[in-house]
Simulated scan of single mutants.
Amino acid sequence: MDRSAGFVGSGQLVRSGRSSGQGTAVCMSAERPAVPSRRDVLLGIAGTIGVALGASQPALAAEGLAGKVDPFQDAQKGFKILRPSGWNEFSASENFDVKWQDIINPVEQITVITTPVTKGKTVADIGTTEEVAAKLAKSRSMEIVGSSSKESQGIITYIVEMKSKSVHQITVLAMNKSKLYTVNITCPENRWSKREKLFKGIAESFIPRL
């Protein structure tokens, strides 16, 4: 795919939240220092993963994603996303910045592409959600299933869902810091019912900033 085409390339966000709590003073004997239990250690690791993406473990569990995804961030390109656990990862090429592909079903894949854009531009500058969805669907000879938009900290994000007889796709589009981010999620249509929750959660998790 020509990366200059940005959002019209072929191929294809769990809302983030923060948890907070107050510490409690505990008096312990100097002779017998407290040793963290295995459960405490595991909970600490789980909490660290949640903070890394700005999403709590309870939120992941509520979406049915706990244990199925891992946090990923690219400091150079300036984005973070949940990635499927156990999938093959491919580093940057002329067609994508990063790609994940299922080992058993290679049609199931996720790519993140960044394209330079004029400073200060947002996805609204390339059209409304409906207009962009129509362009994507036409370029891929697909049918629009649905489209939506959201705004967080001044960054507008479009999410477009499409399908054909053989393939189901979700595309996420956002602009920030002179980059157009395109996340393409692809799945065989006959496996969509099994993957819908996972892939929609991953699409919702994408954040075009660190």
Rank of each mutant, 00 (worst) to 15 (best):
R191A: 08
E131L: 01
C187I: 07
M1V: 14
L53P: 01
Q76D: 15
N190R: 10
K121W: 11
E196W: 02
V160H: 03
Q22I: 12
A92S: 15
E189R: 09
K177M: 07
H168V: 04
T48H: 13
G50Y: 01
A25E: 15
A52W: 04
K194R: 11
E143T: 14
G86F: 09
G64K: 05
K135I: 06
R3L: 14
I159A: 08
S10L: 11
A30I: 13
A61P: 00
R39T: 15
I110P: 03
K194D: 15
P33C: 09
E196F: 00
R38M: 14
G146P: 03
L136G: 00
S193V: 06
A46I: 08
F72V: 12
L82N: 03
E94I: 08
Q169M: 12
A34Q: 15
T111F: 04
R209V: 13
M175C: 11
E130S: 11
S147A: 15
E189P: 00
V41S: 08
Q153F: 10
M142D: 07
V117K: 11
Q22D: 14
V35W: 06
M1P: 15
A52K: 11
G11E: 06
N105D: 09
A52P: 00
L42W: 05
E151I: 11
A59C: 01
D2C: 04
P58N: 04
K135C: 00
Q101W: 02
M1H: 13
S149G: 08
I81K: 04
V117Y: 10
V145W: 01
F206A: 06
I110M: 08
P36W: 11
I49E: 12
T122H: 07
L198E: 07
P58W: 04
G86A: 09
E130D: 11
N176W: 05
G146H: 04
S37C: 09
L42G: 00
S4K: 12
E31W: 13
L53T: 13
G11A: 06
V183H: 02
L42Q: 13
W100A: 01
V160K: 02
D2V: 05
S164N: 02
K119G: 12
I49A: 13
R15N: 12
V167T: 14
N105Q: 09
V132T: 08
S16T: 14
K177C: 00
T128M: 02
L65E: 06
I113D: 09
M142I: 01
K68M: 15
G146D: 14
Q12V: 08
I113S: 06
S148G: 10
G78M: 06
V132P: 00
S29V: 09
A134M: 05
E89T: 15
A61M: 10
G6Y: 05
